[in-house]
């Protein structure tokens, strides 16, 4: 059966992609941020996953407000990077793990989750940026992908507990997939930031650092926090962090945080990552 070899959490701030496009990687504003991902990129090269399941939110690019799915799963053979308004980015097309995607949809529905099934859909920075942070900018991505879209923009957004449960079902799908493929799961978004209202620019470095420290070995309190607590603690857009719980919920009860990084501000956001491995 297929196997989960790692759980990754990361920010997906669009300015990260812009910084790479403009050759700003080694400028003082960005170098400390990108340098923190170097060990995670090495981990990825050493561990050689076959498939990446990426949990992210669309930011008004693939979906408009006319139709907003709370949960959607890509079931396509490929996914193009979307034009968000600044023109198309020079990022390779993503090859889909199409057969696994369908198996995941089957497993979801059997377990009382009802996703929107997407046969054609483009992906925005929510998926592009995590892939660039962990794999750099190769000519072709070294993994197939499964995009999982969670609504974190239009209220009501799903609850943290539901995200954890989604992770449990994702794990069941991977562990019942009859191949020897090696999976990584990326929970993306956050950390603290707020883009709207007079609280715009809100960053909570202490809470962010606690999250990075604790999401591996002490995730219980983050499951139990209400959505409102996420918004208060991490800002309105920082509530994206609930998507890391999908990744964490899919991992063992015991994990080791083998790499971690935090830097603020990346653009207007507290930004960081963890790499978790299962320990039983």
């Amino acid at each position: 059966m297929a196997k989960i070899i790692g759980g990754l959490g990361t920010s997906h701030v669009p300015s990260i992609g812009v910084a790479l496009d403009r050759g700003l990687r080694d400028t003082p504003d960005w170098k400390p941020f990108f340098d923190g991902y170097v060990p995670a990129q090495q981990w990825m090269r050493d561990r050689r996953p076959d498939v990446a399941v990426v949990i992210f939110n669309d930011h008004g690019n693939a979906f408009f407000l006319d139709k907003v799915p709370t949960l959607a799963v890509g079931c396509a053979s490929s996914y193009r990077p979307i034009d968000e308004g600044w023109g198309p980015r020079d990022v390779p097309v993503f090859e889909g793990a199409e057969d696994f995607s369908w198996h995941f949809v089957d497993t979801l529905v059997e377990n009382h989750f009802d996703p929107l099934v997407c046969r054609e859909i483009d992906v925005d920075h929510g998926m592009q940026v995590p892939m660039e942070l962990f794999f750099g900018r190769p000519e072709a991505w070294p993994v197939k992908v499964v995009p999982v879209f969670v609504n974190t923009i239009q209220y009501p957004i799903p609850t943290p507990q539901r995200m954890w449960q989604l992770g449990k079902v994702l794990r069941a799908a991977i562990e019942s997939w009859p191949t020897d493929e090696r999976f990584v799961i990326m929970g993306t978004g956050g950390l603290s930031h707020q883009l709207q209202g007079s609280r715009a620019g809100f960053i909570n470095r202490d809470a962010d650092q606690a999250w990075i420290e604790e999401i591996g070995n002490d995730p219980q309190k983050y499951r139990e926090m209400m959505r409102e607590d996420y918004i208060r603690t991490f800002g309105s857009e920082g509530a994206e962090l609930i998507m890391w719980l999908v990744m964490r919920g899919a991992m063992d009860e015991r994990v080791e945080t083998v790499h971690k990084h935090y830097y603020a501000p990346a653009s207007t956001t507290g930004a960081g990552m963890v790499v978790l491995e299962n320990r039983g």
């Binding site: 209220y155 007079s198 609280r199 309105s236």
Partner: peptide, 27 residues
């Protein structure tokens, strides 16, 4: 128990200065 989050656009909601995309603002 989790509860629904709603903060009006006028900033008088439970989370100050935070306009969430709720039903009222969506419309």
């Amino acid at each position: 128990m989790d509860s629904a989050v709603s903060a009006p656009a006028d900033g008088t909601g439970t989370i100050p200065e935070t306009p969430l995309l709720d039903r009222k603002r969506n419309i």
